[in-house]
Amino acid sequence: MSEFQPKIVAFVCNWCTYAGADLTGTSRIKYSPNVRIVRFPCTGRIDYMLLTKAFASGADGIIVSGCHPNDCHYTSGNFYARRRWIVFKKLCDFMGIDTRRIVFSWVSAAEGSKWADIVNTTNEEIIKLGPYDSYHKLSTQDILE
């Protein structure tokens, strides 16, 4: 599996990170094509169930990204999201779900190069970790066991 190309899903907010990723484009900064971006109005809207769904459906890595604290278009959505991630991460850790595969970041609309960095470093990290077989297997292998 030297040619392992991970599947990475990025859950981003419309106002900061989506716009930041647009800027990466207009600045023509290259990054790995292994990422697929799902647009949300706000990080506050991102449901943790979608993260586990993504893993179950075959994602090897997840990026969750939104506006920096105090920059939220809706003032506080990212603060509630952050709290939820703090708790969710704790639960995942406790349940043995590999949180190295979930990258949380703040990328503003001005941080086009940061977005490329986040994607590239996540991609490299996930390549090192390999496919997330243990979770994928849950949803595929054992259904009739």
């Binding site: 990466t24 484009g25 023509r28 290259k30 094509p33 490329a116």
Partner: peptide, 22 residues
């Protein structure tokens, strides 16, 4: 979005096409 999030940020190739399709 296959311009800002795809053609402008990736190299030509199958993986880029696959991303656009996805």
């Amino acid at each position: 979005n296959i311009r800002e999030h795809c053609s402008w940020v990736h190299e030509k190739g199958d993986r880029t096409d696959q991303k656009a399709i996805d």
